[in-house]
Amino acid sequence: MENAIKINNLTYQYQNQTTLFQDFNLTIDPGQWVALVGHNGSGKSTLAKLIMGLLTPTQGGITVFNQVLSESTVNDVRSQIGMVFQNPDNQFVGATVADDVAFGLENNEIDTKLMPKMIAKTLEIVGMSEYQDREPHTLSGGQKQRVALASVLALQPKIIILDEATAMLDPEGRQAVMATLTQLKEQFGDALTLVTITHDMDEAALADRVVVINDGQLILDGTPAQVFSEADVLHHNGLGLPFSGEVVAHLNQKPQKYLNESELISWLSTSNK
């Protein structure tokens, strides 16, 4: 089967620094929602930039939908991947919401006549239709990130990578962005591969698969239930557990395995009878 992203024996180091990634391997299947977690400086953003061709591997290869990333394919590869960054202000290019969504369309030389419809459609998906003519400084952080998501969606990518897109948001904005993502995944199903980079474990718990890295090393890789059962390993790598896991850690009588929030609630209400 073809992989959405295949990272093969990747080695990378920033100039004048020690090697960050050494023979790193990771494959992501089409339609998967993968949460990439790790503490600050563990190499998550570097990995995302390598996949986007913003950085070039020292050794090894990256393949996106059977296309090997190289100087001649970088534009093709980028047209299949959308990326949302951490700082909402530093990725808003247009003067208004509509102009910002249009920016990517203009770069791809889409016919002007087709743009208004495409913009309206993507803004509707992220629930920002009424804000079409607003300027960025009149929007909240969460709204700006949803516009960033719309800008990416307008280009109809097969893969979306979000690099700590919620890290600078208040709880409400975070909630809205995560809700939008969940809805996107439902709407597009296997046609959309999602990679969410985060160190918020509650966000990671929403994914199908959690990948933990530290200092460019793959530490854990599995379903949320599998990964969150390894509380000690996570703790050792500077990471916590989702809220439900933290609750369990403080119980005297513990369930056998990791439970998510709703599972935990039903477990608590039955086991204490």
Partner: peptide, 13 residues
């Protein structure tokens, strides 16, 4: 720097 990355990933050549 951030903006340059954001522009590039959205297909700016």
């Amino acid at each position: 720097l951030d903006l340059a990355n954001a522009m590039e990933v959205r297909g700016f050549k």
